[in-house]
Design a protein around this nucleic acid. Sequence first.
DNA 1: CTGAAAGCGCTTACAG
DNA 2: CTGAAAGCGCTTACAG
Lengths: 336, 336
Amino acid sequence: MLELRKEVSMGIKEIAKEAGVSVATVSRVLNGTKFVSEDLKQQVLACIEKEGYVANHVARSMVLKKTFTIGLIIPEVSELYHQMVFSQAEHVLEEAGYKVLVCRVKDTVSSVRVYLDLLLENRVDGMLLMHETSNPKVYDQLKKSQIPIVLAGIDIPDLPFPQVRIDDFQASYDGTNYLLSLGKKHIALIGGWGYSVGDKRLQGYKTALEEAGLSFDPALVVPGNYTVESGSEAMERLLASKKTFDSVFVLSDEMAIGVMRTALDAGLRIPQDLSVLGFDGIALSRFLNPTLATVSQPIIQIGVQSATHLLTLLQGEKVAPVTLLAHRIQTGDSVG
Amino acid sequence: MLELRKEVSMGIKEIAKEAGVSVATVSRVLNGTKFVSEDLKQQVLACIEKEGYVANHVARSMVLKKTFTIGLIIPEVSELYHQMVFSQAEHVLEEAGYKVLVCRVKDTVSSVRVYLDLLLENRVDGMLLMHETSNPKVYDQLKKSQIPIVLAGIDIPDLPFPQVRIDDFQASYDGTNYLLSLGKKHIALIGGWGYSVGDKRLQGYKTALEEAGLSFDPALVVPGNYTVESGSEAMERLLASKKTFDSVFVLSDEMAIGVMRTALDAGLRIPQDLSVLGFDGIALSRFLNPTLATVSQPIIQIGVQSATHLLTLLQGEKVAPVTLLAHRIQTGDSVG
DNA sequence: CTGAAAGCGCTTACAG
DNA sequence: CTGAAAGCGCTTACAG
């Protein structure tokens, strides 16, 4: 019992007493901040080892005014793409001694605000934003937050934070042209609208059609929320519309999985009856049946670069306002 | 400039001064811990609003000796299954006012120790362990840690912490019998060995074969690390072995995806030439082509239940040492 | 090189 | 109902 209580309450002060030194000295050997004579250092280290002392980083954070924690705001849907970006970013951050506090946002606007408060109250040193929001109040709060923030894979024009992403207009334009180049005339589009990235992709699609002299048919544009399930539902809606289409451009690979499943269930052959082009280029895409052709984002780079930028900001230096990374068309058997 | 400096350093003390009350009073309206007269409360609230005061939870954590943070140790591979369990657990924890600090372990033993130190130093209130380790030192450290811990989906017999999981022996036994009941005679097995859950599944497989009067062929048992890629490689190894097998039991759905891809590339028809049975029952399994038959874990329940148990422990109450949840066979077109 | 002491921003008995 | 004051476990000028 006594043992347990000691275990819990053991602090720098107790160590200092046992080692016969001051707390300042213990702190110094713990952090290596200043030279401590070898013998004292050994005494302290011995006591720390003996008592199984575990440093208290919350006390440390308080005086340092630095928590070594990065807040990450990430949408809960579209697991695979965001997970991969997150995973890469986390490695970089971890390497630099930072922890990550993840906030997975369910799509409502209010919850972003809640998470933002949470992160700010917990005094994160910086934030990585992977989720667009259109709430002006959240914008204001972000601007006032006084901490380094990087937008990864998204574009919020009103926010003065560095962005790391692809050119979504161009990527969608290229994807659409890829289908056009294969002779497709009726290209359906599935994605999420009403926010910057989605809308830019919609524009890229429209522009490509226009330049090809094809008319834009709103009935071929169906919303989806980036989950497999929503891809499936969007495809059902397209089939139910009785519209003619020879291909579908799906703005996430996960939705494309749902689209292909529903198409196959409807008796369509891919790509003979229907070509399916995805977006993201998740690792899984190459393992699907048929393998998925997709507009591939440089996922690893987005993660690594946005984290690296954040670290740079954390050191008080500047980074480019927009870092545009290259997308590319990944071929696959789903298009032909 | 003055504005900014105020913003940053604004604390409870400044609010108190502005509102003409004591810091104790501000603290009380902030936390609702004690009755404060309506007029004082309004004054304080007005100042907080006006100044955009953001409470400092690190200071709060220090005095409360409670961080409202849960540490989660999760393997980095096998994203989908663990991600789903994590996602569910997080919802429950978040609902109860806890944050989650995620540590994604790359499979080495030493890194578990690093993460454990990290979590302990940051004074997490409890931990959810989803990653088995066989390092005795880590065991000791865990036992001495004095905080509530729950094992989610894993089984470490030497550790006195509540477990929430399926019966892995039985699940594997049932899966193998399912294939046997369809007349399969040569069942290959792909999974990860050398730790409790994997070994139990191997035993279930062996026992089922034995009871069926079939001999166990070590050459049909191939290791994989639960990623899609490793499933693919394992299948390549099986094909290269020139062994005869009519079915393969793959101990994660993600590996099964890799297995199917490689089998298809080799010209095998699924399930006519080869039946593939997965394990986990991730949401994606129903969208694959062919749809994946799998031994389905109650993923949502594992996540919810383990988090709920942790909350119970956090309140000082006890929970059952082992909570066994039901698995079931999910049929699919990959088996026939 | 080492120590005494102040202070980080809160909460909470303890008085009044 | 409200306030003065101690204390949570550290770090770091400031002296010596």
